[in-house]
Write a protein that binds this DNA or RNA. Structure first.
Lengths: 129, 129
DNA sequence: ACATTTTATAAGCATTTGCTTATATGTAAA
DNA sequence: TTTACATATAAGCAAATGCTTATAAAATGT
Protein backbone atom coordinates (compact mmCIF):
# COMPACT_ATOMS: atom_id res chain seq x y z
CA UNK A 1 0.00 0.00 0.00
CA UNK A 2 2.82 2.37 0.89
CA UNK A 3 5.02 4.08 -1.67
CA UNK A 4 8.50 2.57 -2.03
CA UNK A 5 10.88 4.10 0.48
CA UNK A 6 14.54 4.94 0.33
CA UNK A 7 16.90 4.05 3.15
CA UNK A 8 18.71 7.00 4.68
CA UNK A 9 21.88 5.87 2.94
CA UNK A 10 20.17 5.92 -0.42
CA UNK A 11 18.68 9.32 0.35
CA UNK A 12 22.14 10.63 1.16
CA UNK A 13 23.45 9.40 -2.16
CA UNK A 14 20.64 11.10 -4.04
CA UNK A 15 21.18 14.34 -2.16
CA UNK A 16 24.83 14.24 -3.12
CA UNK A 17 23.98 13.67 -6.76
CA UNK A 18 21.47 16.52 -6.82
CA UNK A 19 23.95 18.77 -5.05
CA UNK A 20 26.71 17.92 -7.53
CA UNK A 21 24.70 18.72 -10.63
CA UNK A 22 25.37 21.75 -12.78
CA UNK A 23 22.45 24.14 -12.69
CA UNK A 24 19.84 23.93 -15.42
CA UNK A 25 20.91 27.07 -17.26
CA UNK A 26 24.48 25.86 -17.48
CA UNK A 27 23.30 22.45 -18.70
CA UNK A 28 21.11 24.09 -21.34
CA UNK A 29 24.01 26.14 -22.59
CA UNK A 30 26.29 23.12 -22.65
CA UNK A 31 23.65 21.18 -24.58
CA UNK A 32 23.54 23.98 -27.14
CA UNK A 33 27.26 23.69 -27.67
CA UNK A 34 27.08 19.93 -28.08
CA UNK A 35 24.21 20.39 -30.50
CA UNK A 36 26.59 22.20 -32.83
CA UNK A 37 28.63 19.00 -32.97
CA UNK A 38 25.60 16.73 -33.17
CA UNK A 39 24.84 17.06 -36.87
CA UNK A 40 27.11 15.37 -39.45
CA UNK A 41 27.09 18.39 -41.75
CA UNK A 42 27.97 20.85 -38.99
CA UNK A 43 30.59 18.46 -37.68
CA UNK A 44 32.12 18.37 -41.15
CA UNK A 45 32.15 22.15 -41.22
CA UNK A 46 33.91 22.15 -37.86
CA UNK A 47 36.32 19.50 -39.11
CA UNK A 48 37.07 21.66 -42.16
CA UNK A 49 37.65 24.80 -40.12
CA UNK A 50 39.96 22.84 -37.84
CA UNK A 51 42.17 22.42 -40.87
CA UNK A 52 41.91 25.84 -42.44
CA UNK A 53 40.16 29.18 -42.35
CA UNK A 54 37.58 29.06 -45.15
CA UNK A 55 34.96 31.22 -46.82
CA UNK A 56 31.36 30.15 -47.36
CA UNK A 57 31.93 29.24 -50.97
CA UNK A 58 34.94 27.08 -50.05
CA UNK A 59 32.69 25.17 -47.69
CA UNK A 60 30.05 24.61 -50.36
CA UNK A 61 32.80 23.00 -52.45
CA UNK A 62 34.19 20.91 -49.61
CA UNK A 63 30.78 19.77 -48.38
CA UNK A 64 29.14 19.58 -51.78
CA UNK A 65 26.04 21.33 -50.57
CA UNK A 66 24.00 24.41 -51.32
CA UNK A 67 25.13 27.84 -50.19
CA UNK A 68 22.03 28.59 -48.09
CA UNK A 69 22.39 25.29 -46.25
CA UNK A 70 26.01 26.08 -45.43
CA UNK A 71 25.12 29.63 -44.39
CA UNK A 72 22.42 28.34 -42.10
CA UNK A 73 24.79 26.04 -40.32
CA UNK A 74 27.34 28.83 -40.04
CA UNK A 75 24.72 31.09 -38.54
CA UNK A 76 24.04 28.40 -35.96
CA UNK A 77 27.74 28.14 -35.14
CA UNK A 78 28.01 31.92 -34.99
CA UNK A 79 25.14 32.22 -32.54
CA UNK A 80 26.78 29.76 -30.18
CA UNK A 81 30.05 31.62 -30.81
CA UNK A 82 32.01 28.61 -31.93
CA UNK A 83 33.25 30.44 -35.02
CA UNK A 84 34.56 33.90 -35.71
CA UNK A 85 34.53 35.77 -39.01
CA UNK A 86 36.56 38.35 -40.87
CA UNK A 87 35.90 39.97 -44.18
CA UNK A 88 38.37 39.65 -47.03
CA UNK A 89 37.18 41.42 -50.16
CA UNK A 90 33.81 40.05 -51.09
CA UNK A 91 34.27 36.91 -49.03
CA UNK A 92 33.79 36.29 -45.36
CA UNK A 93 36.35 33.99 -43.84
CA UNK A 94 35.26 31.66 -41.05
CA UNK A 95 37.53 30.17 -38.44
CA UNK A 96 37.22 28.48 -35.06
CA UNK A 97 37.28 30.54 -31.94
CA UNK A 98 39.35 28.55 -29.47
CA UNK A 99 41.08 25.29 -28.81
CA UNK A 100 38.30 23.63 -26.82
CA UNK A 101 36.58 22.82 -30.07
CA UNK A 102 39.58 20.87 -31.25
CA UNK A 103 39.74 19.09 -27.91
CA UNK A 104 36.08 18.07 -28.05
CA UNK A 105 36.51 16.83 -31.60
CA UNK A 106 39.69 14.90 -30.79
CA UNK A 107 38.37 13.27 -27.64
CA UNK A 108 35.26 12.08 -29.44
CA UNK A 109 37.33 10.61 -32.26
CA UNK A 110 39.67 8.97 -29.80
CA UNK A 111 36.71 7.51 -27.96
CA UNK A 112 35.40 5.92 -31.13
CA UNK A 113 38.83 4.61 -32.11
CA UNK A 114 39.42 3.07 -28.71
CA UNK A 115 36.01 1.48 -28.38
CA UNK A 116 36.33 0.04 -31.88
CA UNK A 117 39.65 -1.43 -30.84
CA UNK A 118 38.36 -3.29 -27.80
CA UNK A 119 34.92 -4.05 -29.19
CA UNK A 120 34.70 -5.47 -32.66
CA UNK A 121 30.93 -5.65 -32.77
CA UNK A 122 30.81 -2.03 -33.78
CA UNK A 123 27.47 -0.57 -34.64
CA UNK A 124 26.66 1.70 -37.54
CA UNK A 125 24.70 4.93 -37.37
CA UNK A 126 21.00 4.56 -37.91
CA UNK A 127 21.01 0.80 -37.44
CA UNK A 128 20.31 -1.46 -34.53
CA UNK A 129 23.38 -3.26 -33.17
CA UNK B 1 30.04 34.57 -68.47
CA UNK B 2 32.54 32.19 -66.91
CA UNK B 3 32.08 30.55 -63.53
CA UNK B 4 34.30 31.99 -60.77
CA UNK B 5 37.67 30.24 -60.77
CA UNK B 6 40.03 29.25 -58.02
CA UNK B 7 43.74 30.02 -58.25
CA UNK B 8 45.98 26.97 -58.02
CA UNK B 9 46.96 28.01 -54.53
CA UNK B 10 43.33 28.08 -53.45
CA UNK B 11 42.74 24.73 -55.09
CA UNK B 12 45.66 23.31 -53.16
CA UNK B 13 44.21 24.57 -49.90
CA UNK B 14 40.85 22.98 -50.65
CA UNK B 15 42.45 19.68 -51.60
CA UNK B 16 44.30 19.68 -48.28
CA UNK B 17 41.09 20.36 -46.39
CA UNK B 18 39.21 17.61 -48.17
CA UNK B 19 42.11 15.23 -47.65
CA UNK B 20 42.27 16.06 -43.94
CA UNK B 21 38.60 15.39 -43.25
CA UNK B 22 37.41 12.36 -41.32
CA UNK B 23 35.38 10.09 -43.54
CA UNK B 24 31.61 10.42 -43.55
CA UNK B 25 30.91 7.28 -41.54
CA UNK B 26 33.25 8.38 -38.81
CA UNK B 27 31.68 11.85 -38.77
CA UNK B 28 28.19 10.32 -38.56
CA UNK B 29 29.22 8.19 -35.61
CA UNK B 30 30.86 11.13 -33.88
CA UNK B 31 27.72 13.19 -34.45
CA UNK B 32 25.68 10.44 -32.79
CA UNK B 33 27.88 10.61 -29.73
CA UNK B 34 27.59 14.38 -29.52
CA UNK B 35 23.85 14.05 -29.95
CA UNK B 36 23.74 12.19 -26.63
CA UNK B 37 25.15 15.32 -25.02
CA UNK B 38 22.99 17.70 -27.05
CA UNK B 39 19.80 17.46 -25.04
CA UNK B 40 19.53 19.10 -21.60
CA UNK B 41 17.78 16.11 -20.07
CA UNK B 42 20.27 13.58 -21.37
CA UNK B 43 23.13 15.84 -20.33
CA UNK B 44 21.66 15.94 -16.83
CA UNK B 45 21.51 12.15 -16.83
CA UNK B 46 25.16 12.06 -17.87
CA UNK B 47 26.00 14.62 -15.22
CA UNK B 48 24.24 12.48 -12.61
CA UNK B 49 26.01 9.30 -13.65
CA UNK B 50 29.32 11.14 -13.52
CA UNK B 51 28.65 11.51 -9.81
CA UNK B 52 27.24 8.11 -8.99
CA UNK B 53 25.96 4.85 -10.39
CA UNK B 54 22.16 5.09 -10.32
CA UNK B 55 19.07 3.05 -11.10
CA UNK B 56 16.24 4.25 -13.31
CA UNK B 57 14.04 5.18 -10.39
CA UNK B 58 16.84 7.22 -8.80
CA UNK B 59 17.08 9.18 -12.02
CA UNK B 60 13.35 9.89 -12.08
CA UNK B 61 13.79 11.41 -8.62
CA UNK B 62 16.88 13.41 -9.53
CA UNK B 63 15.47 14.66 -12.82
CA UNK B 64 11.88 14.98 -11.66
CA UNK B 65 10.57 13.33 -14.79
CA UNK B 66 8.51 10.34 -15.82
CA UNK B 67 9.99 6.85 -15.82
CA UNK B 68 9.35 6.20 -19.52
CA UNK B 69 11.04 9.46 -20.46
CA UNK B 70 14.09 8.52 -18.43
CA UNK B 71 14.12 4.99 -19.85
CA UNK B 72 13.93 6.35 -23.36
CA UNK B 73 16.96 8.54 -22.84
CA UNK B 74 18.82 5.66 -21.24
CA UNK B 75 18.02 3.49 -24.22
CA UNK B 76 19.51 6.16 -26.44
CA UNK B 77 22.67 6.27 -24.33
CA UNK B 78 22.83 2.47 -24.30
CA UNK B 79 22.60 2.25 -28.07
CA UNK B 80 25.53 4.62 -28.46
CA UNK B 81 27.26 2.66 -25.69
CA UNK B 82 27.92 5.59 -23.44
CA UNK B 83 26.48 3.76 -20.45
CA UNK B 84 26.76 0.24 -19.10
CA UNK B 85 24.28 -1.57 -16.90
CA UNK B 86 24.24 -4.21 -14.22
CA UNK B 87 21.33 -5.76 -12.45
CA UNK B 88 20.93 -5.51 -8.69
CA UNK B 89 17.78 -7.19 -7.46
CA UNK B 90 14.84 -5.66 -9.22
CA UNK B 91 16.78 -2.57 -10.21
CA UNK B 92 19.14 -1.98 -13.07
CA UNK B 93 22.09 0.20 -12.22
CA UNK B 94 23.45 2.52 -14.88
CA UNK B 95 26.96 3.92 -15.00
CA UNK B 96 29.23 5.58 -17.52
CA UNK B 97 31.48 3.48 -19.65
CA UNK B 98 34.77 5.36 -19.83
CA UNK B 99 36.54 8.54 -18.97
CA UNK B 100 36.11 10.28 -22.33
CA UNK B 101 32.60 11.19 -21.32
CA UNK B 102 33.88 13.04 -18.30
CA UNK B 103 36.47 14.76 -20.48
CA UNK B 104 33.88 15.93 -23.00
CA UNK B 105 31.65 17.19 -20.22
CA UNK B 106 34.47 19.01 -18.45
CA UNK B 107 35.90 20.64 -21.56
CA UNK B 108 32.51 21.96 -22.56
CA UNK B 109 31.93 23.39 -19.09
CA UNK B 110 35.40 24.93 -19.07
CA UNK B 111 34.73 26.45 -22.46
CA UNK B 112 31.59 28.13 -21.18
CA UNK B 113 33.28 29.35 -18.02
CA UNK B 114 36.21 30.81 -19.92
CA UNK B 115 34.15 32.51 -22.60
CA UNK B 116 31.89 33.97 -19.91
CA UNK B 117 34.99 35.32 -18.23
CA UNK B 118 36.34 37.18 -21.22
CA UNK B 119 32.97 38.08 -22.74
CA UNK B 120 30.39 39.58 -20.48
CA UNK B 121 27.69 39.87 -23.12
CA UNK B 122 26.78 36.26 -22.55
CA UNK B 123 23.81 34.89 -24.39
CA UNK B 124 21.07 32.71 -23.02
CA UNK B 125 19.71 29.55 -24.59
CA UNK B 126 16.77 30.06 -26.85
CA UNK B 127 17.18 33.80 -27.06
CA UNK B 128 18.84 36.09 -29.56
CA UNK B 129 21.93 37.88 -28.24
C1' DA C 1 0.40 -18.89 -7.95
C1' DC C 2 -0.48 -14.07 -7.44
C1' DA C 3 0.58 -9.36 -6.45
C1' DT C 4 4.18 -5.77 -6.26
C1' DT C 5 8.06 -3.41 -7.87
C1' DT C 6 11.12 -1.98 -11.44
C1' DT C 7 12.23 -1.36 -16.04
C1' DA C 8 11.33 -1.57 -21.07
C1' DT C 9 8.60 -0.78 -25.08
C1' DA C 10 4.80 0.93 -28.13
C1' DA C 11 1.82 4.34 -30.22
C1' DG C 12 0.61 9.05 -30.67
C1' DC C 13 1.59 13.98 -30.62
C1' DA C 14 3.53 18.70 -30.82
C1' DT C 15 7.83 20.73 -31.55
C1' DT C 16 12.18 21.09 -33.61
C1' DT C 17 15.45 20.38 -37.25
C1' DG C 18 17.76 20.63 -41.71
C1' DC C 19 17.06 21.19 -46.05
C1' DT C 20 14.90 23.50 -50.28
C1' DT C 21 13.67 27.60 -53.33
C1' DA C 22 13.29 32.43 -53.59
C1' DT C 23 14.82 36.84 -52.34
C1' DA C 24 17.54 40.46 -50.01
C1' DT C 25 21.86 42.57 -48.61
C1' DG C 26 26.40 44.04 -49.23
C1' DT C 27 30.88 44.47 -51.61
C1' DA C 28 33.73 45.14 -55.62
C1' DA C 29 34.43 45.80 -60.44
C1' DA C 30 33.09 47.77 -65.17
C1' DT D 1 25.74 53.79 -61.50
C1' DT D 2 25.10 49.38 -63.19
C1' DT D 3 26.57 44.64 -63.05
C1' DA D 4 28.32 40.65 -61.04
C1' DC D 5 29.63 38.15 -57.12
C1' DA D 6 29.39 36.54 -52.23
C1' DT D 7 26.72 35.95 -48.38
C1' DA D 8 22.54 36.29 -45.48
C1' DT D 9 17.76 35.69 -44.66
C1' DA D 10 12.84 34.15 -45.28
C1' DA D 11 9.14 30.89 -46.05
C1' DG D 12 7.85 26.26 -46.48
C1' DC D 13 8.11 21.35 -45.86
C1' DA D 14 9.45 16.45 -44.74
C1' DA D 15 11.79 14.05 -41.23
C1' DA D 16 13.49 13.60 -36.67
C1' DT D 17 13.02 14.48 -31.69
C1' DG D 18 11.28 14.29 -26.90
C1' DC D 19 7.59 13.83 -24.38
C1' DT D 20 3.00 11.59 -22.99
C1' DT D 21 -0.18 7.57 -21.83
C1' DA D 22 -0.78 2.75 -22.01
C1' DT D 23 1.04 -1.72 -21.78
C1' DA D 24 4.44 -5.48 -21.51
C1' DA D 25 8.24 -7.94 -19.37
C1' DA D 26 11.20 -9.43 -15.64
C1' DA D 27 12.41 -10.05 -10.83
C1' DT D 28 11.01 -10.28 -5.91
C1' DG D 29 7.86 -11.05 -2.04
C1' DT D 30 3.59 -13.11 0.09
Amino acid sequence: MNAPEYTSLQKKKLREVIFGLEDDLQLARMAEIFQCFADPTRLKIINSLLISELCVYDLTVVLQMSQPAVSHHLKHLRQIRLVKTRRKGQSILYSLDDDHIRQLFDICRTHLDETDESDHSQYFPGRQP
